[in-house]
Amino acid sequence: MDKFTRIDGLVAPLDRANVDTDAIIPKQFLKSIKRSGFGPNLFDEWRYLDHGEPGQDCSNRPLNPDFVLNQPRYQGAQILLARENFGCGSSREHAPWALLDYGFLAVIAPSFADIFFNNCFKNGILPIVMNADEVDRLFKETVATEGYRLTVDLEKQLVTTPGGHGIKFEVDAFRKYCLLNGLDDIGLTLQNADKIKAYEERCKIEAPWLFV
């Protein structure tokens, strides 16, 4: 998992409440044997005019011109601005995989569904809970200003607008530590690598038949 410290990123506004994980990545893509490569199918049903199937080349599918992520001004966005209850529905970890593969590193919303919220941290995405008025203000500024960017500083727990307005956010201390250090569960366990090696050395003496 990559470290998350501070980003200065283009913002894309997704102005809908209750965006569920089936919308984020529709179920037909779960047959995949991969956890990468979901980016082209992020929001598949909203993004394209035709029906998507796994394994398709998405580059020549008809794009829905009305879908916000298809507008040229939002290409390369790293911060997704969203409404209430983002990520509700099925627990599929494919949803954060798809967001990450598309290029999003942070999602700002007034509230998130619980499992999705957890899954984001496991995959190095920062979900930021912000009060609805602030989110609303960011929506307005994003739409009004082409090339609107925000800085997200995890260490300081601060989102800053181009106008210099700073918005503090809360994050669980342990999760913050993991993100700042790029530690997933495996990364955390590997901090105990010396203990694992010591265990193996002891075991090689006590139960050598397990190491042939």
Partner: peptide
């Protein structure tokens, strides 16, 4: 508890994303 695993058996259905995760990291 961090528990040591002596034997890990794998089959085709539940392993692909795990291998890919290793590769990505």
């Amino acid at each position: 508890t961090l528990l040591y695993i002596d034997r890990h058996l794998l089959h085709e259905v539940t392993s692909p994303q795990a291998f890919e995760g290793l590769r990505l990291a």
